[in-house]
């Protein structure tokens, strides 16, 4: 990659402003993992199928492995590292811990991002809506049940 091919972008990642020179073929996943050392977003299939690399771009869950970094100019990106501030886990993370919803943990960051977006859009989803929201996130360990239970518990807790 030569410098003259680089494309300048400005974006925020987990609330922090970044000015980056990215390559034309660079994916958002490469930017996050290789340039910004945000390795919480997982590199799974690199084909946009497993969902392990799910991040939020302007509040929508997307597969970072098939998204061009160059298209991120002006975008607001959130990753698993931005879910909690300080020592305390975010309520969804804590609920995953309490409901044993983590096994191998490789899909977990992507699942958390998908469900974070769901909660923002639909604060009180039905179990079916949670399952449908997870259609882009494969998990081979858990059978999904304890993840769905964790999310429903958070939604219930947040209800006034």
């Amino acid at each position: 990659m030569t410098a003259d091919q680089a494309i300048a972008i400005r974006c925020t990642v987990n609330g922090e402003e970044h000015t980056l020179e990215v390559g034309p073929g660079e994916t958002l996943l490469q930017t996050l993992r290789d340039r910004l050392s945000l390795t919480g977003t997982k590199e799974g299939c690199l084909e946009g199928e497993c969902g392990a690399c799910t991040v939020l771009v302007d509040d929508l869950p997307v597969d970072a492995c098939i998204l061009a970094a160059a298209a991120m100019d002006g975008r607001r990106i959130r990753t698993v590292e931005g879910l909690s501030t300080g020592e305390r886990l975010a309520p969804l993370q804590q609920a995953f811990l309490d409901h044993a919803a983590v096994q191998c943990g490789f899909c977990t960051p992507g699942v958390l991002m998908t469900l974070t977006a769901l909660l923002e859009q639909r604060p009180s989803p039905s179990p079916e809506e949670v399952a449908a929201a997870l259609a882009g996130n494969l998990c081979r360990c858990t059978g999904y049940r304890q993840m769905i239970d964790a999310l429903l518990a958070v939604a219930k807790e947040a209800r006034p």
Binding site: L38, K42, S84, L97, G105, F106, T108
Partner: peptide, 22 residues
Amino acid sequence: ANLPRSDGEAKLRGDAVFGVDL
């Protein structure tokens, strides 16, 4: 007892280092 797993928090924060992260 339903006690949490010791690697759970690291996996939930994205801190856990998997083979491909090395």
